[in-house]
């Protein structure tokens, strides 16, 4: 006999499909939703439906956007000669929150991963090349994670873009601010030494 009422079991099943949500968490969230005021639960359901309906990719940078072209790409105050290439939309948000980068972005939607069979053609690299062909970009900042996959993607992009006469840079690797050298792992210290700069 089913321990849950059928609609509750369905909700738990759907919640379990979300990242980081196991059976226990799914059960807890489902019971919470059940106890919420009906209006709040419906607002949540509407928000989920709306995000699916109304959000699409920006036709220029491939970030998520409500419009054909996102607000960053439309902004005339942005520096159009610098493009920061990120792997995922959440990386764009992280950089944008700093307020340091005033140029444009390009979202690849993934990184090259040889062992997982993710090849360059599965990313938005072709679209980046088309974009660079039609713009006066002087610098591309590759902001992929300092992982083997992030390195592979950055190296591949550098190999593609340098012959076009575009300056290709990459985010620095090394110690995080406030870190204690004594507690840093050796791989990070080696990287910090290699990416050191003159003062």
């Amino acid at each position: 006999m089913l321990a849950y009422a059928r609609p509750l079991a369905r909700l738990i099943g759907e919640l379990e499909k979300l990242p980081g949500i196991g059976p226990k968490s799914a059960q807890r969230v489902a019971y919470h939703i059940l106890r919420m005021p009906k209006s709040a639960a419906l607002a949540l359901a509407e928000a989920i439906a709306e995000v699916q309906e109304a959000v699409r990719f920006c036709s220029v940078c491939f970030n998520f956007s409500e419009d054909e072209v996102c607000s960053i790409c439309r902004d005339p105050r942005r520096n159009k000669t610098t493009i920061c290439v990120v792997a995922e939309p959440r990386d764009l948000i992280a950089i944008e929150k700093t307020g340091e980068h005033r140029g444009l972005y390009h979202v690849l939607h993934g990184v090259i991963s040889p062992q997982d069979g993710i090849m360059p053609e599965q990313l938005r690299i072709r679209e980046l090349l088309q974009r660079l062909d039609q713009s006066e970009t002087a610098e591309v900042i590759v902001a992929t994670n300092p992982t083997v996959e992030g390195d592979a993607t950055a190296l591949y992009l550098s190999k593609l873009l340098k012959p076009l006469g575009i300056k290709v840079t990459r985010l620095a690797h090394g110690l995080p601010l406030g870190a204690d050298l004594d507690y840093a792992d050796q791989a990070t210290i080696i990287s910090a030494l290699q990416w050191r700069r003159e003062m």
């Binding site: 040889p114 083997v148 390195d151 592979a152 190296l155 591949y156 791989a187 080696i190």
Partner: peptide, 25 residues
């Protein structure tokens, strides 16, 4: 973990990175 070799040169060259990935797989 005590890192003995992070093979940083392999990670800095696409050709070497591709070959090392292949050897490990």
């Amino acid at each position: 973990w005590l890192v003995l070799d992070a093979f940083t040169r392999i990670r800095a060259e696409l050709g070497l990175l591709a070959r090392a990935s292949y050897l490990c797989e």
